[in-house]
Simulated scan of single mutants.
Amino acid sequence: MLSEQSAATVRATLPAVGAAIGEITERFYADLFTAHPELLRDVFNRGNQAAGTQRQALAGSFAAFAAHTVEHPHDRPDAMLGRIAHKHASLGIAPEQYAIVHKHLFGAIAAVLGEAVTPEVAAAWTEVYWLMANALIAIEKRLYEESGGGARREWQVVERVPETPDVVTFRLRPLDGAPVRDFRAGQYVSVRAELPDGARQTRQYSLSGAPGSNLRQISVKREPGSPTTPEGEVSNHLHARVHEGSVLELSEPYGDLVLDSGEETPLLLASAGIGVTPMVAMLAHLAATGHRAPVTVVHADRSPAAHALRADHETYTAKLPDASLHLWYEREAPEGAGTGLADLTDVPVAPGTRAYLCGPLPFMRAVRAQLIEKGVAPADVHYEVFGPDLWLARA
């Protein structure tokens, strides 16, 4: 909780900081990587840095935390903090790194805002930063403890399965043969790959297989890049260079987009593109545990041929006693599927439904709006963003 004096200062200066936060974060990352090039090489996603999406995510989360702190001083935005902490834990972020971030972030704030950063303003915003940082450190400490310390392990690829021209599934087992901790359907692991230039880049991939096995399964979409975004360094490396017998470093499972265990609640699982991966794991878990409440499955894709894990999607849905599958394809839609973007207008949604979304941000925003119109409580709509969480940055 902010002190009264700091809360008043933050409230008064929030518009100015918010207006300059993009410039501040750009300067912050430039200064940080100049002082610590190893962080860009081995910790931060170089593709997201090049595209600017990581800057947007940091700006959005820090500004949102500050606004929430002054508007709701007696509670914490735990959903946002939890999502960030899971990503940090999967990367192995350590408490001492928060002091490094503080040094360069506040150096950037002072450089951009100049004389407006009085000692009083600096103290107030430092208080905001450490409230957020210490909350994340505490959550990450708990996550590391729950995962047995959070150490990475080596896993060997035992099977490589082409799903579509752009998606490959890798099935892996622990190289040391030791038992593994189970995961919850919807979680992800971080995969660390050594690239040709020596960088050890890390990416998160949802576990697309069912829990309860000593194997891990990830389904990786090759990101080709575009005029505004670079091609995916790690995804292209995995597609080109990783085969049966290859060894990868994997983190323990993390992620908060998980089903509530043991509760017979109506569910809606909505995905688009490669966002199908956590949803297939959830469906596999529901089928294995005999979930009997209604399950509505929604998926949108470019075409049936681009629909990764389509057979699993259909098979697991068919195993549930009260489930329906609703598909949309932008082209080549077969009979029974919709053409174009997902539209839930005619999709029945049971009262009390809890919804889980994964896919591109415009898709999730549209689905969330339609679900709320249908009476689903906003608190019952949960989502996962692949890459930097830009939901807050574009809110």
Rank of each mutant, 00 (worst) to 15 (best):
L2A: 08
V10Q: 08
P15G: 10
A20P: 05
A30R: 15
D31P: 05
Q49R: 10
R55I: 01
A59I: 02
T69V: 12
E71S: 12
H74Q: 15
I93A: 15
A99T: 15
V101G: 05
H104K: 05
H104D: 03
F106P: 10
T118L: 05
E127H: 08
I137Q: 07
E140T: 11
E140A: 07
A151D: 13
R153V: 01
V161Y: 00
R173M: 10
L175I: 06
P179G: 12
P179D: 07
D182R: 01
A185Q: 06
A185I: 06
Q187N: 09
V191Q: 05
L195Y: 02
S206Y: 04
L207Y: 07
P211I: 05
P211G: 07
Q217P: 00
S226M: 10
T229F: 12
P230F: 01
V234I: 03
H237M: 10
R241A: 15
V242H: 04
G245V: 00
S246Q: 05
V247G: 13
S251Y: 08
V258N: 00
D260M: 01
S261I: 00
E264R: 15
E264N: 13
T265A: 09
L268Q: 03
L268S: 08
P278S: 02
M282H: 02
L286C: 05
V297M: 04
V298L: 08
A300S: 10
A300C: 11
E314H: 13
T317Y: 00
A318M: 05
K319L: 15
L325G: 10
Y329S: 11
P334V: 07
G340L: 13
A342Q: 13
L344G: 08
A350Q: 10
P351K: 08
T353L: 09
F363K: 04
V381I: 15
A393G: 06
